[in-house]
Every structure is written in structure tokens, then in C-alpha cells.
Simulated assay, not measured.
Amino acid sequence: MSKILEVNQLSKSYQSGDRHLTVLEEISFSLEAGRSLSIVGPSGSGKTTLLGLCAGLDTIDQGSVSINGHDLSQLSEDQKAQVRNENVGFVFQNFQLIPTLTALENVMIPLELLGKSSALEEAEALLDQVGLANRKDHYPTQLSGGEQQRVALARAFSNAPKILFADEPTGNLDEETGSKIEKLLFDLNQDKGTALVLVTHDIELAHKTDHMIRLKGGKIFESNMLSQTTA
């Protein structure tokens, strides 16, 4: 099976005053198409930084990251944005919906950026798939947290991504709503054949993925294959 994500000897550091802070050190792993991987670890272990580097949202200091065969370290910012537009979906803890747009308009944005003439129809179909067809004309402030995250999921899948990056997708939700979003997330990934990289504090959620990486002090402390079955 082809590798959708390849991370090789990835390191990242920042300068803070007179101090040189190493956030990640020599991180290596890969993820095959259609498979899922969770990244866990205590606060400050580098989870969100790693996710940002893997998605091309931050600049790599050392090592390399490839998404669907594209080496991000060799690309300009515009080229990285193109790779994201064509290959990547995002789900964040705080939803990041545009408050002045309706649920339908939020989902349509990536489709319109791709120049899809069928943006309206595709966005409506995605909202229907996440159970929000009857809420399409509502604004984010008129939706519950769970409904906002459903809109965010629909938007994340609107460009038919080959890989989805999810940063604490249930972190702002109560347990019952979070469980529903988890199920929807995994169901959509399986239905669309999308690879998943999931940052979470929830070990129970992490164990639902095929592969779990545990970070500690910016290094891979533990790496476990949780499932050998093809998704």
C-alpha cells in the first residue's frame, strides 16, 4: 500500500530570548493510505507542533515531510498551499468556522477555491452526510458545539482529501457529543478512504487508530501498531 505521509528525522527548535528550545528531535514515521495514526503525550511534548509540520503549516528545521510524494521542504509556500488544497483536510478543537457564513457557505469555501461548479450540490450532500441538512442556513453561533464540529467535518472532507489532520477534535465537547463526533470521524474516513492523523489527550480514542505514537520531551517515547487489518 502506498505511503500518504512520510516523516524522516524531523526536528524543530525555536529561539526564546537567549534560550534555544528544541521542540521535536529526530522524529520518523510513515502512514499508509487509508490508515489512521494517533499522536499522544503530555502538554508541551510537541504534538501540535508535529501536526503543523506534517501538514506543511510550519517551517521544517531539519529532516523532511512528504505528503502523497511531495517533499514539503523543497516547496515554496504557494506550492505547499497547493499540496494542502489538493490532498489535506483539517479538523480543529475550536472548529474554526467563519462566523459570518452559514453552515452551507462554510462547507462550500474549499470547493469554490478548487473551482468546482458543483460546489453547492457537493456541500449540501456533505452536510446531509453529517446529519445537518436541515441546519444548512444557520450561522455558527446558532449551532451547538457538536453541530459546529459536524460542519467542520463536512468542510474537511469537501476537497476529497487523501489525509485528514485532526487536532483534539473532541476537546471542546461533552463526553456524549464527543463520542458521536468520534464515530462520525472514523465512519467518514473509512467511507472516503482517507488517512487520519489524530492528536489527542484521550488514550481511549487513540486506541481506536491503527498506530499510536507517544511523544515525550519532543521525542518518540513509544510507537505501537494497534491494528494490522486494512481499513
Rank of each mutant, 00 (worst) to 15 (best):
E105D: 13
M108T: 10
I98N: 09
V91C: 06
F90H: 01
Q79Y: 11
L97E: 01
E86H: 14
L111I: 07
N87Y: 08
R84A: 05
L114N: 11
P110A: 01
L113P: 04
I98K: 08
P99T: 07
F95V: 04
G115I: 09
N94H: 12
M108K: 11
A103I: 08
E112V: 12
L111E: 01
R84K: 02
N87A: 01
N94M: 14
V107C: 05
I109R: 05
T100V: 15
V107P: 06
G115F: 14
L97C: 08
Q79T: 12
F92P: 03
A81E: 02
R84T: 07
N94K: 12
G115A: 08
N85D: 12
I98M: 15
L114Q: 13
N87T: 10
Q96A: 15
E112D: 13
N87H: 12
L104V: 03
T100D: 13
M108I: 10
L111R: 04
F95G: 10
N106A: 09
G89I: 08
F95P: 02
V83W: 12
V83N: 02
R84D: 08
N106M: 07
L111Q: 05
A81H: 02
I109A: 10
G89S: 10
L111T: 01
P110M: 03
V83R: 05
L104N: 03
L113Q: 13
F92S: 06
R84L: 11
V91S: 01
E105W: 13
N85Y: 11
Q96R: 15
M108G: 05
P110I: 07
I109V: 15
L101H: 09
G115V: 03
Q82G: 09
F92V: 07
T100M: 14
P99E: 05
N106T: 01
Q96V: 14
Q82K: 14
L101S: 04
M108D: 03
Q96Y: 10
V88N: 03
K80R: 15
F92G: 06
V88E: 06
A81F: 06
L101R: 06
E105V: 08
P99Y: 12
L111C: 04
A81Y: 05
E112P: 08
G89E: 03
P110H: 06
E112K: 10
N94V: 12
G89Q: 00
Q82E: 14
E105P: 02
V107R: 00
Q93S: 09
N106R: 00
V91I: 14
F90M: 03
E86Q: 14
A81S: 14
G89F: 08
V91N: 06
P110G: 04
V107Q: 02
G115K: 07
V91D: 07
Q82L: 15
N85F: 13
R84H: 03
E105S: 02
K80A: 04
L97D: 04
A81G: 10
P110D: 01
F92I: 05
F90D: 00
K80Q: 13
L104C: 06
E86N: 11
Q79A: 15
N87R: 00
N85S: 13
P99A: 10
F90C: 00
Q82H: 13
A81Q: 03
Q93F: 10
L111Y: 04
L111D: 03
G115R: 05
E86W: 11
P99H: 10
